[in-house]
Simulated assay, not measured.
Amino acid sequence: MTHYVAGFVKRINARNRLPLDYSVASLRVVDFVVDGLRKGGADQGSVRGTLFGLGAYAGEVMVRRAGGAWTDFDVSQRELFGQPVGIRMPDGRVWNPLGKVVNRFDAGAEESVRGLYLQLHGRARRPSLDSAA
């Protein structure tokens, strides 16, 4: 997933020059982009790839900033979360950033991607260059 996210960020930054720098603060940009897609009247099917990429990006922020690791969901988790992969935190809990982005698209502001990060239990405490964490 890390390699996929790097390619996604490169493509989206080339077109839109978004500040996707893997900081916690950049998760606000994810919320903003999803809101723009939603308000622009796009249907979920037409933006599925972009939503997946933004969700993967959010997951990569969780990996880099909070000590998470990508994990393949088992069959029951795939059924529950509707996604093939997620993030396992150091405390063993799994989180679904890809699904959170889809929820943001479907429900709006009450489903904050940045808010998901702030709710993580078991975040590794690492020194960060991101003062907005």
Rank of each mutant, 00 (worst) to 15 (best):
M1V: 09
H3L: 09
A6W: 09
F8A: 11
F8N: 07
V9Q: 10
K10Q: 13
N13L: 02
N13K: 15
N16W: 13
N16F: 15
R28E: 14
V29M: 10
V33N: 03
V34T: 14
V34N: 00
V34P: 09
V34A: 03
V34W: 09
D35R: 04
K39I: 01
K39E: 10
D43K: 09
R48F: 10
G49T: 07
T50I: 12
T50D: 06
F52I: 04
F52L: 13
F52Y: 02
F52D: 06
L54T: 03
A56F: 14
E60C: 02
V61N: 13
V61Y: 04
V63G: 01
R64T: 03
R64Q: 13
A69M: 07
T71A: 13
V75E: 15
S76Y: 08
G82A: 05
P84V: 02
G86L: 06
I87E: 02
R88W: 00
R88F: 00
D91L: 12
G92M: 06
W95C: 00
W95K: 01
P97I: 04
G99Y: 00
V102Y: 10
A107G: 01
A109Y: 09
E111A: 02
E111S: 02
S112K: 07
V113T: 15
V113E: 13
G115Y: 07
L118C: 11
L118W: 12
A124L: 15
R125I: 14
P127N: 01
L129W: 04
